[in-house]
Design a protein around this nucleic acid. Sequence first.
DNA 1: TGCGTTTTATGATTAAAATCATAAAACAAG
DNA 2: CTTGTTTTATGATTTTAATCATAAAACGCA
Lengths: 198, 198
Amino acid sequence: MIATELLEKYGALKKSFEKSEIIFEEGNLPTHYYQIISGEIKMSNYNDDGREFIQGIFYKGQSFGEPPLFLNQKYPANSIAVEDSEILLLPKSTFLKLLEENPAISIKIIENLAQRLYYKSVMAAEISTHEPEHRVLKLIDHGIAYFNFKKDVNGYLINFTRQQIGDLTGLRVETVIRAIKALEKKGELKIINRKVYR
Amino acid sequence: MIATELLEKYGALKKSFEKSEIIFEEGNLPTHYYQIISGEIKMSNYNDDGREFIQGIFYKGQSFGEPPLFLNQKYPANSIAVEDSEILLLPKSTFLKLLEENPAISIKIIENLAQRLYYKSVMAAEISTHEPEHRVLKLIDHGIAYFNFKKDVNGYLINFTRQQIGDLTGLRVETVIRAIKALEKKGELKIINRKVYR
DNA sequence: TGCGTTTTATGATTAAAATCATAAAACAAG
DNA sequence: CTTGTTTTATGATTTTAATCATAAAACGCA
C-alpha cells in the first residue's frame, strides 16, 4: 500500500465503481495502478462454460493488477467490484516515475508481491493434491491471517459465501457445503445460523 | 537475475549441489538469496501420501525462494537439485543491504516476482477449471515462452517427463500420457519416439 | 554389456467430486 | 409487506480422472 498523499501528489485520481462494475478485463493491456480506498474487489477468470475461478479478493488499502503492469502483458483475469468501491488510479507512466523517485516504495511493492506469491503457492499445492475439506480449511486459515475476518465471541467470522469459497478453491458449492458440515462435525469449525466461525 | 559480479562484490559464495540434494526444506526459515549459476532446481510440495506438486522449475541465471525471505515466513515448499548444480548464496542481511544500495535491482526483483505471479495465476485457473488436455497444453505453451525449451525441425522439444507435467498440473502420469496422446491425435502436438514436440 | 531403474504405455475398475434436481431459508429491493 | 433473488441445504445419479495392475521400452551406470 502506497500512502494516499504520495499517490495524489503524482496525480492519482479517485474513481467510483458500483457493485458488479468491471474495472478491467482479461486480455486487455494494463494502463493504471489501482489502489482501493473503500469497498471490495475480486479478480477472477471464467472458463468456457462460465465457471469462475477467483484469483483473489482485495480490500481497503490494497492494490491489485500490478503484475501485468510491470511486464507489459495482458491481464490474465477480470477485475470487478464486489460492492460499491472507490479506487485511486495512477497512470502507468506516472506510477513508474513514482517508483523510480521513491526507492522505498519498491520494497513495499516487493513485499506485497511476495505475499501474494506465497498465497498462490500454498493454494496451488492445496488445490492440486488435497481433498475438499483440507482445501477449505486451508483457505479459511489463510483468510484469518490475511483477509479482514473479524473475531467475536464465537471465533473468527468467515465472511465468504460457500460459493466464494468454492470459486477460490476450485470446488463446487455443494461440495463446499458438505465439506463445511463435515468439518463442523469434526469440531474444526462452528456453524451458527449458517455463518461459519473458526 | 542479479549480475554475478555484483553478488560477489557483496560476498556471495558459490556452492555445489549434487543431483537430488536438498537446498532448503518446507517449514524452515530463509537465510539466503539463491541464484543458479548452472544446473536445474525444482521447488515442490509433498502431501501426506507423498504425492508431489511442483511449484516451479528454475534454470541458469534464475533466482528462487525469495518470497519468504522478504516476509520472514517459513518456506512453503522444498527445493531440490534436479541435476548437479552450482548456486550463488548471499546471506539475507547482505542481500537486503545490496537491495537498499542498488535501487535498480529492486525493479528487477519486482519484474521477476510479477512474472512468477503471472504464471501462478494462469496455472491456478487452469488447474481449477479446465480438463486435463487443456491444462497440459497451457503448461506446454507457457513452457515454450518461459522455460528453456529448444526449437528444432520438429518444433519445440518439451523436455519434461510425463510425470513432471503431471506434478506441475496436478494430474497423474497416466492421465497426462492419455491427454498427450489425445492432443497428438488432434494435431496439437507431435510425439516423435516418445518425445513431445509443439 | 548386463541389470536395475525410470519412463512410457494400456486396459479394467473404482472412488470421489461434479452434476442434476429440488427446496427451504434468508436477504434485498421496490 | 411482497416478491424476486441469492444462499444454504440434501439426496440421487453420473462422469471423470484416479487407482490398480501389468509390461515393454529406454536409460544410466557399474
